[in-house]
Every structure is written in structure tokens, then in C-alpha cells.
Design a protein around this nucleic acid. Structure first.
Lengths: 258, 258
DNA sequence: AACAGTGGTTCCACATTATGAAACTCTTGG
DNA sequence: CCAAGAGTTTCATAATGTGGAACCACTGTT
């Protein structure tokens, strides 16, 4: 992360510097010493000492037994909270890989986050042409296959307000959206074609927890030229079939009982 | 996180303030807006804007589609890296719970981190008296049961340098330590009694991956008054038995083969 | 279509502090 | 015991962090 050029102050140079120190601590292969951080960032030891002490006060860094810097409690807690998603990722990575292998296209695992879809994991397909990396990205609910699944199966409510028209094919009225979600429930999977972006098609199906609640969705995405309408029903059924094999629904419950 | 009192400057007030904003973003139940953060932290909107922009430049925060603040890529990457441990935690939490139920004592899951033991997870026992929360804490290798296991089974080398004498019972010479590790290998489990702290006894056993390598250790810990010497052999064998049931060794390999 | 309200950015004068050199303390290894 | 390295504290000084005000953009309501 480049710091701003020497010259006009930004009113946040110290914050840029301290943030760069924090990122260095987080990305270090082994916990760095204060002197090492000062040297690497062109800071006086006294400056580095004050900055790291401030980060330490706020729980962003801590010192290990050697006095070297590691992530602090605030970040460890953040990582733990994030690991809820990571466990979901780890458990379903084989599913994404398998679907990518079978279909040759990019697959994604996503959850609802606020009034959007958040992609947690992605396995790229065999083609050079496919979606760019969506992990960490947010997608709208109403015009993504993932979002339609999450709404249809009550993982997230249909958001209020107007629907953004991303392309001329995007669903833009609430009535059309509700009708579409009815279809998704009936079929068990969702489809978009040129709704999120021209030339982009996706199919998605729900992932359920042990109680049968939908907690995430899995999709296959690719260019509309490859994912032709004729292929979509079979893709949908494939997703349903493969996701059911991965769900803990019922089978896991029996195992859990003493 | 309290900011320093009004008065003598610390040379890092801006960093304290910006760090507090970052922590607020990470701990927010829903992504906060800039105006909300400014208000909550007693800052002018212009100040909050500059600070958050600096955090954003360094990848510590990002803005979602509504302009609200969420963790940035540097932190998401950090959380992902940390989730290696979290997967281990999730998979072995039932083991810790079972051991805590059977023994009534506190159980821990730990890995080697540098030249120390890092506790990743803990399940408290039935008693009010037990260890405090060790998660995130670092313990020395040579005088913890967990550390002895990790050294004995080559999850971590025996560190160079002098051995810190924590109590009068602590192993303090390299020769004694190596002899002790020989015993651990022979028995399959490690024991400490009043070595880490007076009155504290622990038993630990290894956790292996699919290739049989030791990647973590699990321990039962309690006061020496409850974990008497007579109980330790049976506890050790219990740990061996229970951890073997959880290991993917061999059984998982067969399942993994096509 | 117009307007009010809200969120966020930019500017700039000024008060406040962030900076680094130097001195000091502490720890470790030879 | 001593040298070297790591880290902390002090303080004079240069640099910047601050917040109010003005402005822009967007959204929702009428």
C-alpha cells in the first residue's frame, strides 16, 4: 500500500503510516519486532513505538512473549466472527470443486449480507473466460441467481424500495420479482440470464442446515453463449442433486442423536 | 477502548481515534455510515472522512454499495489466514466437549506457533474452579502438556536457548527435557504437574492429520488437588482413545480414495 | 418535477500535535 | 562483565490534524 506522495498533506499521513504498520504486522510471515517495522517503513523508532502503542491500546495489535507484534484481540475476534463463514466455505469447497469440474464453469458459494448477496468462495471453471473473482464482492439480490434463491427460501426478506435496473432484462417491479420467486420455489433452483450483466448467465440452488433452513446458496456462472437456455434445466437439477448430497439435512440429525 | 484522557498529548491521538473507528467498524452489527461513526466518536464529519479514507487506502476498511464501512481486503485476507485454525477448531469442538463432559475438567485445543503453544479453543469443565480462558494465549513449550506433545511428535522443534523456570518443578535443562519427550513418545501422552504453575496439572495427547502427522494437541487441565497422580494414566489413555476416534488417519484415507 | 433532508467531500485558517534525535533503560548473549 | 540491540521517554520544532463552512450528490416525499 503506497503512502501518499510527499507534498500536500492529506490530514491523515500519520494514520496512513500507522495503518501500513498494522497491515505489515498482519501480513508478516513471522511476528516482526518494532525495530524491524520502523526500518521497513522509514520511521524513527520513537515514532514507530508511539504508533504501535496506540494500535495496541485499541486492541489492533498485541505483543508476543518476545515483544514482537501480532494481531490484537479486536482482530482475533473479527477473524473468529468471520470464521463462521469460513467453516461454511471449508465444508463446501469440495462441492464447488466438483460442480466446477462437472460443468467446466465458475462456481460460487454465497450468503445474504444485509440486503445483498455476499460471495464467500469461488472455484473457477476450466475456461479462460468466466467471471472475475467475486469473493468478498456484493451482488444485488433481485438480479442474481444466488439472491433469488436466498429470497425464495427465506434466507433473506425481499428488500423494500425500488429495484435497480442493471440491464434491459433486469426484473424491475416487485410483482415480477415475487412471481419469479414463486417459480424458484417451485423448481428448486434460480436462473438469471442477462439480468445482472449482459452476456452473463447463472443457475443457483440452496444450501440447507440441519434443520432444513436455507443458509447459503451455490451457483454456476458463465457466459450466456455457453450456458444456453437448453442447458439450464439440467444444470438446475444437477445443482439440486449435488447440494442435497452435501446438506446435513436429516442424515446428520440421526447421527447427532445419542 | 478508551481514548487517552484530554491533557498531555501522546503523539498518537489521531492514531488512537482512527483505530477506534476501525474497531467500531469491525465490531458493528451492521455496516456503519460515516456520519454515524463521526457522531459516535465525537468527531467532525470531515475528520472522520479523512481518517476512514486513510484506512480505506491501506485496505483496512472498504465501503459497501451503500457507502457503509466494512472490513477491507487486508482484514478479510487476515481472517482467511486465521480460518485455517478455525476449521481445526470447528472439527474438534465436539471432541473438546466430550472430554470436558467425561472428565469434568477444562479442555483445550492448541497448535505450535513459533516457539510457543497457542491455544485455539477451550471448553470449560463442570467446576467453577478451572483454568481461566486460554484462547489466544501463548504458553511455553517445555512446561505445558500441550507443548511437550507438540515437541515429542515433531510438530515443532525443541527450541534453542535456556528454559524458563516457571516453578521449582519446571524442567530447566535440555537433557531432562529430551528424556521427558522420550517418555511422552513411549506413552503417547504428556503430563505436567506443577510445572507451568503451582497447583496446575494437565494431560495432553496429539491430533494427527490424514498422513499421520501431528498438527495439534488436546489437553485436559485442572487443579492438582483434583487431578491427582493416580488419575493421570487413565486420563492419558482416555485422551489417546478419544483423539484417535477423531483423527482422519487411515479411515479417512480409504474414504478419500475413488 | 421540485424540494428538503441526509450523507459525504473539499477547502483553509489555525491550534495542536506528530516527529525524530538524543539520552536512557533493560535484556540478552558472548 | 561488557557490548549490542531493542524499546521507551523527553523535548524543541516543524508539520499537520482539526472542524466549521460551503458545496455536491443522491434519495425520498410531495
Amino acid at each position: 500500500m503506497a503512502e501518499p506522495r510527499a507534498g500536500a498533506p492529506t490530514g491523515a499521513q500519520a494514520i496512513d503510516r500507522a495503518s501500513a504498520l498494522l497491515v505489515a504486522v498482519l501480513e508478516a510471515e513471522r511476528p516482526p519486532l518494532l525495530t524491524q517495522l520502523a526500518l521497513a517503513h522509514g520511521l524513527a523508532k520513537s515514532t514507530a513505538s508511539r504508533m504501535l502503542s496506540a494500535l495496541e491500546r485499541q486492541g489492533l495489535v498485541a505483543r508476543d512473549r518476545d515483544g514482537a507484534f501480532v494481531a490484537g484481540q479486536a482482530l482475533v475476534r473479527f477473524a473468529r466472527t468471520h470464521s463462521v463463514g469460513s467453516d461454511l466455505i471449508a465444508r463446501h469447497r469440495p462441492l464447488l470443486e466438483r460442480l466446477a469440474t462437472i460443468t467446466g464453469e465458475t462456481t460460487n458459494l454465497a450468503v445474504a449480507s444485509g440486503e445483498e448477496v455476499e460471495s464467500l468462495d469461488q472455484v473457477d471453471g476450466a475456461y479462460l473466460l468466466g467471471t472475475r473473482n467475486w469473493v468478498g464482492s456484493r451482488l444485488p439480490l433481485h438480479c442474481s441467481a444466488l439472491g433469488k434463491v436466498l429470497m425464495a427460501f427465506d434466507a433473506v426478506p425481499v428488500p423494500p424500495g425500488r429495484l435497480e435496473r442493471r440491464t434491459s432484462h433486469t426484473i424491475a417491479t416487485r410483482a415480477d420479482l415475487l412471481a419469479e420467486l414463486q417459480q424458484v420455489r417451485r423448481r428448486g433452483f434460480a436462473v438469471i440470464r442477462d439480468e445482472l450483466e449482459e452476456g452473463l448467465t447463472a443457475v443457483a440452488a440452496p444450501l440447507r442446515d440441519a434443520d432444513g433452513h436455507v443458509v447459503a446458496a451455490v451457483s454456476v456462472t458463465g457466459p450466456s453463449s455457453r450456458l444456453t437456455p437448453a442447458r439450464l434445466p439440467a444444470l438446475g437439477l444437477l445443482l439440486i442433486d449435488e447440494t442435497r448430497r452435501f446438506s446435513p439435512h436429516q442424515r446428520r440429525r440421526k447421527e447427532a442423536q445419542p
